[in-house]
């Protein structure tokens, strides 16, 4: 029983981080039709922003809020500098562009900061375990689940109720029509990028709170998994990102449980492989954007 609860918690924990990441990817995809490869680097940017602020002596929570805003700002800048000049080009071009940006940022982190891992001091209450009888639950995991679910609910309210959220959804479902209805393209796209940056920052906070360090390739592995999770979920709908994220979390937690020790090194490889194999059966995702599969 204890093991099962622990297993459930680790699914929710991993799943909610991947869901936040995948959501960030889908929000941008909805507007511009491409998956932003540099999304993982927004995570890394959050990590470094946090690192430096703590270094300057700012309190952890203030630093976190500023770092999340910073990640959002970086995403907006990325759009302004790199993607806006290419507006209207094929999604393939935008994808490769984001791939190149990711590569460049990677080098910048290595040269300007450090190629090595830098420890980030995590506040006391996030480390350690809560004990309930025989049950040990890491505080960071509880924190992750609470934060992730709160932000998912807030996001849902934002998308459903606020004016900007409705604009986002409108232009995601039909960009051209939305424009003719008077929605400003640049503003909505900037908003989407900001939102995706904030989501990446949130995911990074949760990721780092469990690992306590930041390094240049921090965002790469979670991002590539989230990319495939987003595709698996279905890119047309934010709900798909949730499904994909939690499916991925479940897969990973299960593998953690069942893989023998000598195969643990292959865990990520197996996860990726399974995700890709899943795509064979559902090339358009769980929530398909294309109701007419080829026959």
């Amino acid at each position: 029983m204890e093991e099962f609860i622990q297993y459930l918690i680790s699914i929710l924990n991993l799943g909610s981080i991947y869901a936040l990441l995948a959501l960030g990817l889908v929000v941008v995809f909805g507007q511009l039709g491409f998956l932003n490869f540099a999304h993982g680097d927004l995570m890394t940017l959050f990590g470094y922003a946090l690192l430096f602020q703590i270094g300057w002596g700012l309190p952890f929570w203030i630093a976190v809020v500023i770092a999340i805003m910073f990640a959002g700002g970086c995403a907006v800048m990325m759009e302004r500098v790199a993607f806006r000049p290419l507006r209207g080009r094929s999604p393939m071009t935008l994808l490769i562009t984001s791939f190149a940006i990711s590569g460049a940022l990677h080098v910048v982190f290595q040269v300007a900061i450090s190629p090595r891992s830098k420890p980030i001091p995590i506040p006391e209450f996030l480390s350690g375990y809560i004990t309930m009888g025989d049950l040990f639950i890491s505080r960071a995991q509880i924190f992750t689940i609470i934060v992730a679910f709160t932000s998912l609910i807030l996001l849902r309210i934002f998308l459903a109720r606020s004016r900007l959220g409705i604009c986002l959804r409108a232009s995601a479902s039909d960009f051209d029509v939305a424009r003719t209805m008077g929605i400003q393209a640049n503003r909505v796209i900037a908003m989407a990028f900001f939102l995706s940056g904030v989501l990446a920052g949130m995911a990074a906070l949760l990721w780092i709170s469990q690992r306590g360090a930041v390094h240049p390739a921090l965002g790469l592995t979670p991002m590539i998994k989230a990319l495939i999770a987003a595709i698996i979920g279905g890119l047309s709908n934010p709900k798909g990102a949730l499904y994909g994220g939690f499916l991925l979390g479940g897969l990973e937690a299960t593998l953690l449980q069942i893989l023998p020790d000598n195969l643990v090194v292959f865990r990520d490889a197996i996860v990726l492989l399974l995700l890709i194999v899943f795509l064979v059966y559902r090339p358009n995702g769980i929530i398909s954007s294309n109701p007419e599969p080829m026959r």
Partner: peptide, 24 residues
């Protein structure tokens, strides 16, 4: 796998292949 995927999904899956190979 690749012959069933197009566009974005194909590119991302192919990138997954690099990571898988690297980890292996």
């Amino acid at each position: 796998v690749m012959m069933r995927l197009r566009d974005t999904a194909a590119v991302i899956a192919s990138f997954g292949l690099v990571i898988i190979a690297y980890l292996i």
